[in-house]
Design a protein around this nucleic acid. Structure first.
Lengths: 362, 362
DNA sequence: TTGAAAGCGCTAACAA
DNA sequence: TTGTTAGCGCTTTCAA
């Protein structure tokens, strides 16, 4: 009934207590649903609360319980549907257990991530889920662990941290899919990723991302099985916006010994690569084969539909949130962590190369 | 240096004050950067804080400042790249002004939205951005206004609320694009949307979503300009998952007087519609024309590339967050709100219908 | 510029 | 089952 526009002082337990003619403590107990309260008191308090439109101040509550019922999530790019889906898994799970989610986007910048983690800790979140921008520089994550607050990793691993990590086995699926490409007759297989490095890729280079390291390792193993070496000249990192991806793709397709197959490291890369291929007037898979990570719905719409590596991203989100909440609440692992396996889905974008690949001399 | 794994008691201003040999108040002032503090004291306090690895408790801070530096965002589906992009705009803007974002997903359920809003209010967020699931039932949003906390609407309007709304003029762009379809020779134009209703669409029906109402109104106007009526039998609401969209699409394409053009209300719908068209062995635009809302990158990859209605979603996010923060900080409108206009991008999915549309008799 | 002390709105001993 | 009384960690009077 009190629709007086102005920002009136919030009504507190004290107000409710007075209205219900009970002590503050009793009112708080009835309102907070704890302790012992007689039916009579409970009723009066609840009625008064309703009447006064009382709303608990969760900040105050958190202050003395030490629990905020909030978890922090730090990802590189929420605009990327990959994380969008994972986020959905996280929020769905969190909501079920009564948790809220504070989301921070880092743009894959480590500095932003360090900041994000600090802010969330200061806000006293009950736990953190982070998709680390770097798998190597992890001191800020170490600090989270030191603070005693539960931490769980999503999508990527981090060195020297014994945090639970929810990601698929990239090495395995990468090996499998490269094998498939090789068996289809390819040897000039390119790999394009956004991973930022200070210099072009070369054999044996230490990478900042466990994901990419593992994938390259898988590719390398597949080649090795055939007695071949990974074509390092076709590994292209530092792909940024759409234009740079397209430029890289054009570069891959030109020259005396072009790539006959391209693996796109994520959906954004894929968009640029496919567009560049189309713009170059080349056909998939007749002129060049294509394989990408993440099974987005649109990959079935192109002509031909694209062969993809499906990752259970939504499930990863669920698993990460479930594990985190379990740790927060101090429960033991109930169900064993579900397997998070990636699958190669063969559609139409991989075929035999037109001309047999020439063994590169260098 | 204190890397003792266990969750040690947090260090507080009191601890820092003691270490720096000053009063709690002075320590707090130095740490919180307010009030008057001598250089000497500031130095000692900061040094002590560093030494003890002091971190402020933002909850406590928020408690007595009444500001949490947090804004709440309520959307229907974060998995949808439409909202993913808007979210990006919001978080980017929030971060610049020192705000964090609590995200709640409602799955487009009003009950969940009511809940979400309440939770955020209880958590004492400084302001709210919501994309209302319903443009009609808005009492919970009215309550936000009553509470005095700033509220801004995203993507959709809400009746009887004088909250600033950041959305494109759907009526205009819908009119324009329908006009384009009609001029291309279409009269059997279908419209497919997820909007949930309790019965099939019929002329004059009151819809829960301002977006959809406005779009249908635009379509209706375009038809009226030609002295024609909107083909109400081709307006299909309640499209849910991919399968239901495909079933609806098949229905649209069958029968004696099938649709010759289909407008997909969002990206998810579009995926199902296009897939169903392809599965039916029909060609776009030879057999059926296609138009969709949102210019996702993948729409350029299909054959033919799809004609779309581009919405400045990222900018909408920025504008909403900017306006909200302005209101929170009580500043006057600095720059006038930028225009948020949608554009029709003609690509290859609209053409002339094969056979002239027969005027439907019923 | 400083410090003592009083809150913010709640929960949590402790007695009664 | 109730009420009283301390806090939680910070900000904010108010005097000094």
């Amino acid at each position: 009934m009190s629709t007086d526009g102005s920002r009136r002082r919030d009504v507190t337990v004290a107000d409710v207590a007075k209205a219900a003619k009970v002590s503050k403590a009793q009112a708080a107990r009835a309102l907070g649903n704890y302790g012992a309260v007689s039916d009579d008191v409970r009723e009066r308090v609840l009625a008064a609360a309703e009447e006064l439109e009382y709303r608990p101040n969760e900040l105050a509550r958190s202050m003395n319980t030490g629990r905020s019922n909030t978890i922090g999530v730090v990802v590189g790019d929420i605009e990327n549907p990959h994380f969008g889906l994972a986020m959905r898994g996280i929020t769905d799970t969190a909501k079920k257990s009564g948790y809220n989610v504070i989301l921070i986007n880092t743009d894959e910048e480590r500095a932003a991530e360090v900041d994000a983690v600090r802010v969330l800790l200061d806000k006293r979140v009950d736990g953190l889920i982070v998709a680390p921008a770097s798998s190597v520089e992890t001191s800020h994550l170490q600090q989270v662990q030191d603070s005693g607050r539960p931490l769980v990793l999503l999508d990527r691993a981090a060195q020297g941290l014994d945090a639970e990590t929810f990601a698929v086995d990239m090495g395995g699926i990468s090996y499998e899919s490269t094998k498939y490409l090789i068996e289809s007759g390819h040897q000039r297989i390119a790999f394009v990723s956004t991973l930022k490095t200070d210099r072009p890729y070369e054999e044996g280079m230490v990478l900042d991302s466990s994901q990419i390291s593992d994938r390259l390792e898988g590719i390398r193993r597949a080649f090795k099985d055939e007695g071949l070496a990974l074509p390092a000249d076709l590994v292209r990192l530092n792909a940024g916006d759409s234009e740079s991806v397209k430029a890289i793709t054009r570069g891959l397709l030109e020259g005396p010994d072009p790539a006959t197959a391209i693996i796109a490291s994520d959906g954004l890369i894929a968009l640029g690569v496919v567009e560049a291929i189309q713009e170059a007037g080349l056909a998939i898979p007749a002129d060049v084969s294509f394989l990408m990570y993440d099974d987005f719905a649109w990959t079935r719409l192109t002509t031909p539909p694209l062969t993809v590596i499906a990752q259970p991203v939504y499930d990863m989100g669920i698993a990460a949130a479930t594990a985190l909440i379990r740790r927060i609440e101090g429960r033991k692992s109930a169900a064993p962590t579900p397997e998070l396996v990636a699958r190669l889905i063969q559609r139409g974008s991989v075929g035999a190369p037109q001309r047999t690949a020439v063994r590169a001399s260098s």
